[in-house]
Design a protein around this nucleic acid. Sequence first.
DNA 1: TCCTGGCGCGTATAGTTATGCGCTCCAGTG
DNA 2: CACTGGAGCGCATAACTATACGCGCCAGGA
Lengths: 168, 168
Amino acid sequence: MSTVADASPRERRQRLLTDLVARYEVASQAELVALLAGAGVEATQATVSRDLEELGIGKQRGADGRLAYALPEPGGLAQVLRQFAIDIAASGNLAVVRTPPGAAAAVASAIDLADLDGVLATVQGDDTLLVVADEGTSGHAVATALRERKHANPARAAEPAPGGDPTT
Amino acid sequence: MSTVADASPRERRQRLLTDLVARYEVASQAELVALLAGAGVEATQATVSRDLEELGIGKQRGADGRLAYALPEPGGLAQVLRQFAIDIAASGNLAVVRTPPGAAAAVASAIDLADLDGVLATVQGDDTLLVVADEGTSGHAVATALRERKHANPARAAEPAPGGDPTT
DNA sequence: TCCTGGCGCGTATAGTTATGCGCTCCAGTG
DNA sequence: CACTGGAGCGCATAACTATACGCGCCAGGA
């Protein structure tokens, strides 16, 4: 598929965009158009807008509260799972995730940080990790949730889950 | 400080906003205004815009590529560092991060996942982790980068390199 | 009490981003 | 070759967001 030698102008532009967004605090598409032009790539704001959508790039607040373009969260759980979770199974109140050797810890802490509903704790070895389900939940449910995270694309939050809410 | 009993209308509104953004995929401020109204809170789009800035809320791509408001990244490196990195020091080609007992692994994998420039690898114990700098980089440089991540926010800060002038 | 400064917010509008429409450039077919 | 369908993109503009400005409210000092 995407060979590096493949230099369609479209791909080149998008690659450059990703790079610009990662490296600088860019606040507007007009700015991106200018930066692209500076790199010898012509494009209009409309094209950039469409590219940003395809690349999954959004706007987040910088240190000063200003909006700046940002790549899709690289530390997100979905990303980690997609990269490292070879297999996700369940037994009793446990979900079991297999990973490449040495990657279990990374997956475990990503799960911990994601603070998923129904997850009580994680323990990991080298290439395997156990996810302990809360009482009232099953390992299967947790495994399913993890699989969803893995296959559903992005990092987002939009759930019914009326229980256990810190606010309000 | 922010007592729960403190029912300033402003604070109430912002709390509600945070909640709405966390729970639903909201695409526009007009929508937020409507949702607020539905919860009995009157506000205009301008006010919402200002609130979002204060709350650090940005727009990220949802599953379908559409933009939706999103809370500041909870799993991000900055967040992890702020929460767990007690001290960041350096010696030779190493940066040394102290954490609360047991948290070193989480910080290490967050750093791994962030894929920082100049970072070759990480090794961690229970409450300490070593970050090995690339050749050509120093432990001090890495430590500085980590401190910046900790104190600044997600995106980077820099100057447009190619003489592009983002005029307005 | 009157004055003064700061904060919060609405209004109006400038600034920014998304998108309907139509054109051009292929690749695949007959 | 001519024909057809689809992808990619620019133009113009609608949709959306940020902000300059001004007003009203409130606390502190004279």
